Amino acid sequence: MSYAVGQELPAFIIESVSAEAMKKWAVFLRDPNPIHLDVEVVKAKGLGSRVINQGPANVAYVMNMLLAAFPGGRIEAMESKFVDNVYAGDQLQAGGIVTGVADGRVNCDVWLRADGQRLVISGTAAILTQLVL
Rank of each mutant, 00 (worst) to 15 (best):
G96I: 09
A60F: 03
A88F: 02
K24H: 12
G6Q: 07
V17P: 09
L37K: 07
Q7N: 15
T129H: 03
Q7S: 05
N64Q: 14
E20F: 07
L128V: 03
Q93W: 00
V110D: 14
Y3C: 13
G123F: 15
K45G: 01
V132E: 13
V17T: 05
F82L: 15
G55N: 10
V110E: 11
N58I: 03
V110S: 06
P71I: 00
M65Y: 08
T129F: 03
I121H: 04
F28Y: 11
N64S: 15
V42E: 01
D109I: 02
R30T: 08
L131R: 12
A26V: 12
R50N: 04
D109N: 15
N53A: 06
L131N: 11
L37V: 04
Q93C: 14
M22H: 12
K81A: 05
L37D: 03
V106W: 05
M63S: 14
V62I: 06
L133H: 09
G96V: 11
M78I: 12
R50S: 12
A125F: 09
L66H: 06
H36W: 01
V132M: 09
L92D: 09
H36A: 01
V120T: 08
D90W: 03
I35H: 08
V120Q: 02
Q117Y: 15
V86W: 00
R105D: 02
D38N: 13
